[in-house]
Each structure stands twice: as structure tokens, then as C-alpha cells.
Simulated scan of single mutants.
Amino acid sequence: MTKKRMSLNDLINEHFYADSATHERTRVAWVIGVTLLCVVASLLITYTALAVTNSPMLPVIFVIAALAPGIIAPITTWIIIGAIIKVTRLEELHRHQATYDDLSGLLTRRAFLERCEALLRLSVRNNQPFTLTTLDLDKFKRINDEFGHGAGDEVIKTFSQIALNVLRNADLAGRLGGEEFAIALLGSNPADARQVMERLRRDVEASSIEYFGKQISVTVSIGIASTEGRVNPTLEGLLRHSDAALYQAKDQGRNRIELAGYT
């Protein structure tokens, strides 16, 4: 049985839960370390002061010298380290929200395009094929109108999970906005990309989404553009060509794949 691939949201949540345990261990370690350091430093300072002043080295003095930092240091260190960890986690959360779409778990438009640009440069430098696809859920407005926006959200979540299950870890998937998505495949020529997209198209068509007792079916139209056969390809150009192929798929009846030409 094939293991179901986790969504990006699941991976991020798992990462945050794991980080919580790590942060707590780090916090405890800092408290212990700082407390021991403070106690040792206090005892050394006390000993030095008594030795320099020729004062009697009474045990009670050393007990007080150890107890004071032993009580104060753990409390202050726990508070300070906790504040630092909280700020760090907020920064991580903000980075996550800027990188991943909350509803689909896929990359946001900005994050997708930035990473896509880097992959395109890498593919050109290494003379590797690079294929960009744009995808649009068919008649999505009808789903929202007939079943409600909550149903539309479930459709987007289901489609995104299907896409993640089909794609390789090295592939990029992003939500460009609304019901429009994009997928980048590094090292895949148009024929390879079409096979992957055909599997995705079939899996989406075969899916059935249950929403409050109602079954919702959905299909997807896909446009493909590749660097193969293009001179000095740009991300803007690939997006334009894949969009044109997508519109052609829509015009040809939807629920199909079209490959962009080289003009």
C-alpha cells in the first residue's frame, strides 16, 4: 500500500511541534547552565573577597552565596530564554505564512515565483529541461454558487493534496490565486511533464469530495510550457506560454492538457 504523502501544512505543523519540544529542552539546558555558572561565580567571588579581607570563612556565608544566585538565576533565565524563544517562533510563523498558502498548503504566489526563478536559472546553467504548468479548476465558480464557499475551500484542499501525492519532492507547487495553480518540474521535458500532469488530471477527475452529505466532482485544465526549444527562456515568458496553453485547454472543452507552442 502506498503511503500517503503529507501535505505541506502537515509537515509544517509537525515541524513546529517538534520545535516546541526542542525549545523546551533548550530552555531547561540554558537555565541549568546559567544557574550553575552563577553559583560557581558567586562562590568564587565570595571566597576571594573573604581571603583578601582576611575575614573568617564561615559556612553560612558560602551557603548564602550559593542560594542567592541559585534562586534568582533560574527564574530570570527562564523568563529571558522564554521571551527569546517566543520571538523566534513568531518569526518562524511569519516566514511560514509568507511562504505557504493557509488554505491549500502550497507555496504562495510570491514564494513560488521566487523559487521558480532560481530553479530556472539552475536548469539553464546546467543545460537541464525545465517545465512550467499552469492549472485551473474547471467551473469553480459554479461549485461556490451551488454548494457554498466552504465547499470551494474543500475542493482546493483536496486538489492540493492530490497534487502533492503525484509530484516529486523536488517539484514545486504553488497557488497563484483563487482556483489557479502552477507546478514547476525541474529535469522534466514536455513529454515527461505531460505524463505527470495526465496522472494528476485523472486523479482529480476520479476524486469525489463529500461536503455535508453532497458529492462534488471537479476537473482541471492544464497548460504546459517548457524551456526545450526556447532561446534564453524567462519565467515571465514561460508563464505567458503556459497560460496561453491553459486557455486553449479551456476553449477545447476543459478537463484536458495542452502544450504551448514555440512561437
Rank of each mutant, 00 (worst) to 15 (best):
R5K: 15
L8G: 10
D10G: 06
D10T: 11
D10C: 03
I12H: 12
I12M: 06
N13W: 11
F16P: 03
Y17D: 14
Y17P: 01
A18W: 08
D19V: 07
S20H: 12
S20Q: 15
H23S: 15
T26R: 07
R27N: 08
R27T: 05
V28A: 11
V28K: 05
A29L: 13
L36R: 00
C38E: 00
S42Q: 01
S42T: 01
I45V: 13
T46F: 06
T48P: 01
A49F: 14
A49T: 15
L50V: 01
A51G: 07
N54Q: 10
P56Y: 12
L58R: 10
F62Y: 12
A65D: 02
A65I: 03
P69V: 00
P74M: 00
I75P: 07
T77M: 00
I80T: 06
I80Y: 06
I81W: 05
I81Y: 09
G82H: 02
K86E: 13
V87S: 11
T88K: 13
L93S: 13
H96M: 11
G105D: 05
L106G: 03
L107W: 07
T108W: 13
R109K: 12
R109W: 04
R109N: 12
A111M: 05
A111Q: 05
A111W: 08
F112H: 03
F112M: 06
L113N: 09
E114L: 11
A118F: 10
L119F: 05
L120N: 09
R121G: 04
R121Q: 15
S123F: 06
S123D: 06
N126D: 11
N126E: 12
N127S: 12
Q128C: 09
P129D: 04
L137T: 06
K141A: 04
D145S: 09
E146V: 15
F147P: 09
G148F: 00
G150N: 03
G150D: 02
E154P: 02
V155D: 03
F159G: 02
I162F: 01
L164R: 12
L164C: 05
V166E: 07
N169I: 10
D171M: 00
G177F: 11
E179W: 01
E179C: 00
E179D: 07
E180G: 03
A182W: 15
I183K: 02
A184G: 02
A184W: 01
L185T: 09
L186Y: 15
S188Q: 09
N189S: 14
A191W: 13
D192V: 13
A193K: 10
A193S: 13
V196W: 07
V196Y: 03
V196G: 00
M197R: 07
E198G: 04
E198W: 03
R201T: 03
R202N: 10
V204H: 06
E205S: 11
A206R: 15
S208M: 12
E210C: 13
Y211L: 03
I216H: 02
S217P: 01
S221G: 04
S221D: 00
G223C: 08
S226A: 10
E228D: 13
G229D: 07
N232A: 09
P233D: 13
L235N: 02
R240W: 11
H241D: 14
A245W: 04
D251K: 13
D251V: 08
Q252V: 11
G253Q: 05
R254M: 04
R254G: 14
N255Q: 07
R256L: 08
E258F: 14
A260W: 06
Y262S: 12
